[in-house]
Design a protein around this nucleic acid. Structure first.
Length: 145
DNA sequence: GCCAACGTTGGC
DNA sequence: GCCAACGTTGGC
């Protein structure tokens, strides 16, 4: 299983809206960046992801999982653009902010820090576990600590 | 709201 | 295939 991070501006698509979609989930449409699209093409069902609020909030607010493999983006008639579907898995006990992440030396190489403009990005296993720990969760079981 | 960083486009 | 111009993202 791989780990990822999805960014969303909460005034466009928030964690609350994502949760309201329940287990059916929602397609992550609107991505028009090749790197982000390529990351989605690599995703497998059940891969886990952080849900991050950009522009406003600037924190990881939830855990989601991939529930549909990459498919054409239904919002555009252009074969180049694809997306996966994701569904909300869990709230986090203690949201972790960008500044929390920046001030943790173990996370200095996270794409969130190194490649700010990439909206769908991979998260290394060590990074996943560390961010989960900071949020008050066990990254393996996703149970609260 | 500003602007730095970065990706894309298109003329040459 | 270079690179200037332009557009977008996202932290501040």
């Amino acid at each position: 299983m791989k780990y990822w991070l999805f960014k969303s501006e909460p005034f466009k698509w928030s964690w609350d809206q994502q949760k309201a979609k329940g287990d059916i989930g929602e397609e992550w449409d609107g991505i028009r960046n090749y790197q982000a699209r390529n990351n989605m093409r690599e995703m497998k069902i059940g891969d886990r992801a952080f849900f991050y609020h950009s522009r406003e909030g600037l924190e990881v607010v939830g855990i989601a999982e991939v529930c549909a493999l990459s498919h054409p983006d239904s919002t555009i008639d252009d074969e180049r653009w694809e997306c996966v579907d994701i569904r909300a898995v869990s709230d986090v006990p203690n949201p972790v902010s960008l500044s929390d992440i920046k001030s943790n030396p173990k996370l200095e190489n996270m794409a969130l820090v190194k490649n700010t403009r990439l909206s769908v990005q991979p998260v290394l296993e060590d990074e996943w576990m560390e961010v989960c720990r900071m949020m008050g969760m066990d990254g393996k079981s996703l149970k609260n600590l």
